[in-house]
Each structure stands twice: as structure tokens, then as C-alpha cells.
Amino acid sequence: MKSDSWKPWALLGPSLTAVFFLLVIPVCFVVVYSFWLRAPSGNDIPAFQFGNYAKFFADFFYPSLLIRTIRVALETVLLCLVMGYIPAYFFYRTESSLKPFLMILIMLPFWISFIIRTLSWINILGDSGLINHVFLKIGLIDRPLAMLYNEAAVLMGLLQYLLPFMILNIYVSLDGIDKSLTEAAKSLGCTEWQAFKEVTLPLSLPGVSAGCLLVFVLTCGTYLPPMILGGPGNDMIANLIFKRIVGTLDWPFGSALSTILLGLLGVIVYTYNRYLGISQIFKTLQ
């Protein structure tokens, strides 16, 4: 038994090496950069000081972007959960021969570039987009509705990006539930709703947890939907990081912002694990 203990490490070796070199080391670089200084020309000056962090906390403008990001992420999670559970449950229950086709439809958005999918909303929600065009044509409105370049449009962009992640996570969890359990509950007198509430829902929670965590983390790091579909005042923290790193070559401050976001997400994941148990999520996969 003992002589076999190296085998898992040998199997994990390539992945761990890739994670170490492509994730751990770059993150360490980012953390080190966050203590450096930016010269007026845009060059970096090696240093060990906390000025970049002090700058973040000294001015409410920066924390306010982080708070907005968390708020938008929570809204996205809620929307994805409500809109994702129903189709996932449908896939679990249906015996239709169309099920594989419907599953492919869920995966279909991944075949199209995220940027193109996001941009396509402009043709739907814009002043001369599909919805306004039809409403104007049938006389329902006399001027275009402002549906684009606001927070609702950003949420729409995030939803179309992240909904499949939520659906698939919940579906995987539901698919692992023995259907005879709900039948047993019903044979013991439960109504359809009670069987769902007492049996199916609790057993699907690991998938819900995994989906919520994934959607939350991905939302916090995304910058394209706010950039393309957002209006003045809809920027999120990733937009600011992008601007600092690329726009002003202020790598030290951009790195400090990234480290703060990373730390915050780490705390959230840790708390999530403590109270909801990430280990439960992996049970879904088993």
C-alpha cells in the first residue's frame, strides 16, 4: 500500500507543475509588484512600501468600486440561480428523446466568442435594436426605450455568460440523485412539491453551492460586459485594474488592486467553505 503512495503524485505531477508555473508564480509576481513604485515615465521602481494599499483604503472611490462589484456579483448569482435551477430540474426530470439536443443548446453559447455574444446585445437592446424597432413599428412606444448602457444591460450580459455554468453545476448535482427517493417520499404521503422540497432540493444543494461560487468568482473578475454594455458609472473593479495596468502602465497600483481582489475572494471562499463546505461540492462529482 505504502509503495503505491507516489502514484497519485505522479499522476498529479504535470497538473501541479502547470499550476505552479502558470498560476502560483505569476500571482507571486503580482503580489511583489504591488509593493513597488511607478516612476513618472511609467517605469517600475523596486521597493517595499505599502503606499499602493494605503492609496486604495484612503480614498472611498476605490472601495466603492469593489463594493459595487460584490453587489453586482451577488445580483448575478441570484439571477443565475433562479433562472438556472428550473432548466436544470427540467433536464433531470425529462424523459424526452430531445434531452441530448437540449443539453447541446446549453453548451452552444460556449462555441461562440464571449465578446461577440456580448456585442450582439447591442443589436437587440439598442435604440435601433430589435426590441425598440418592433415596439416602434407596432406603435407601442413613440421613442426608443433606454435599455442599453446601464446596470440592467450589464446584468443581462453577465447572465448570458454565466447561466450555463449554473445550469450545468445544478444539473450534475441533480443527476446524481436517485429518482426512487422522490418516489419513496411520495409513496409515504408527500405531495410532489413536498417531495421536491424535502428530498430533491436538499440533495441538489452541493450543485447549487458550486454554481453560486463559480458565478460569483467569475463575475468579480470580469470586465467585458461593463465595458461594452455599461454606461457611465457601471465600471467594476476589473475595469479599473485593466485601466491601471494597460492604460497608465501603473503596474504597482494595478497589482495592489488585483491582490486586494484576490484576498477578498480568498476570504469569501474560505468563509463559504467553513459554513457551506466546499467538500460537499466535490461529492457532486462523485
Partner: peptide, 12 residues
């Protein structure tokens, strides 16, 4: 740097 940061605030 100073004006970019200020501009970001105004824009926000």
C-alpha cells in the same frame, strides 16, 4: 497618473 485617476472618478 494624476489626471487619469481624476478622470476615472469623474466618469464614475
Amino acid at each position: 497618473v494624476e489626471w487619469t485617476e481624476k478622470w476615472d472618478r469623474v466618469k464614475a
